[in-house]
Write a protein that binds this DNA or RNA. Structure first.
Lengths: 101, 101
DNA sequence: GGGAATATTCCC
DNA sequence: GGGAATATTCCC
């Protein structure tokens, strides 16, 4: 039988942007970046993200970036096909919210 | 009359590599990088350069690089036309040295 | 958002 | 050393 770590698909360089983004968004300690309730959209709180991920002091993590500029991070998102969503996805806490979607 | 700062030629972006290199090599506080006695060759002490310029702690200077790898610094030198000199230039302290050159 | 210039990394 | 991939910056 064939068991192996499927935390990342094959062929993805673990130090490149997509892999870092994957780890960052899946780490619940990173409050500045998370999945929306449907797991289809990445939610980013710019202020928290800058403070927790981009600030020079946060540079101990292997997932840190060399840039400290939020705009450069967004440039990377765009280069990898991410687009800003027109209407921000709200946090859906209740069934009623989902019905009203 | 026309007086102005000639510390860098016109058209040189002061935050790009050539300008940073110019300031680094001309600053006598940077012991890891200096001119040879003829002012034609840049002398680099890798160990001192890494310690004083490339180390993460040195990143307060506007002339700091984002890389901490000496090899990446050398890649930049090569991209701007610098080549390693075959025989290292020795420090010439006396007239006799110059005669013997 | 994205094209292009520049910097950094990776690899031959 | 340098080509090419990737990251970062600059600018429209």
């Amino acid at each position: 039988m064939d068991f192996r770590d499927r935390s990342l698909p094959d062929g993805i360089n673990p130090m490149n942007f997509p892999a870092k983004l994957w780890r960052l968004v899946n780490n619940p300690l990173n409050e500045g970046i998370s999945w929306d309730i449907h797991g289809e959209v990445i939610l980013i709180d710019q202020h928290l993200f800058e403070k927790q991920i981009l600030s020079p002091r946060a540079n101990t993590s292997p997932d840190a970036f060399k840039t400290t500029n939020f705009s450069s991070f967004v440039r990377q998102l765009n280069l990898y096909g991410f687009k800003k969503v027109d209407q921000p996805i709200k946090q859906l806490d209740t069934l009623q919210d989902i019905i009203n979607l």
